[in-house]
């Protein structure tokens, strides 16, 4: 009887110790499961997938940059056009340089061709949201981050996005800045 009891005891103690080890073995097991199934990886969880992209269509967007004559700045696009799907997040850069010998505050105003395309531009970030101050001789790259609304009219295949920089100092202007900057 005593040997029967002690052998049962030995077996049960081994099981208990084994399960203590199993608790720790669950740690690498957990990470392996996550890795194999791709559940817990950072890219899967932190980047939300954009499901709104309409890959069946292409729209060409052409960029145009102008300065009002009262503003001694050089303003240009870094690329002439991009071809995008509606719904896709697009980032483009503009470049601006102040050639005068003093700091100037400028404000960019957008316009669209055709004008009805403006309603479908969803701008997330734009240098035209705020007045820009450039020191004498300063050169700067400025981004525009936007999404073209997927509900954009089917017949719009090419859109022109044009910016004009105005000097915010009223004395320097020949053409006046519009009373109210259109909401962009």
């Amino acid at each position: 009887m005593a040997t029967g009891k002690s052998s049962t005891l030995t077996k049960l103690v081994i099981v208990a110790l084994g399960m203590f080890g199993f608790g720790f073995a669950l740690v690498p097991f957990y990470y392996k499961i996550c890795e194999v199934t791709g559940i817990n990886s950072g890219d899967e969880q932190s980047l939300v997938k954009n499901t709104q992209v309409d890959t069946s269509r292409w729209v060409t967007i052409e960029f145009d940059a102008n300065t009002n004559e009262g503003l001694p700045w050089q303003f240009k696009t870094t690329q002439r056009s991009v071809r995008v799907h509606p719904g896709q997040l697009v980032q483009v850069e503009y470049e601006v340089a102040n050639h005068s010998d003093h700091a100037i505050v400028g404000q960019a105003v957008p316009s669209y061709g055709p004008a009805r395309a403006g309603a479908f531009f969803k701008k997330i970030e734009c240098f035209c949201f705020t007045p820009q101050t450039l020191a004498a001789g300063e050169r700067r790259q400025m981004p525009v981050l936007f999404v073209l609304d997927p509900s954009i009219d089917k017949d719009l295949h090419t859109i022109t996005l044009s910016y004009t920089f105005f000097n915010t100092d009223p004395r320097a202007q020949t053409a006046r800045l519009p009373e109210k900057v259109p909401h962009v």
Binding site: V15, G18, M19, F20, F22
Partner: peptide
């Protein structure tokens, strides 16, 4: 109990 109590012991040890 023998199968799970040690797992709890492991978890609280961690």
């Amino acid at each position: 109990l023998i199968a799970t109590m040690p797992v709890l012991a492991g978890a609280v040890t961690m």
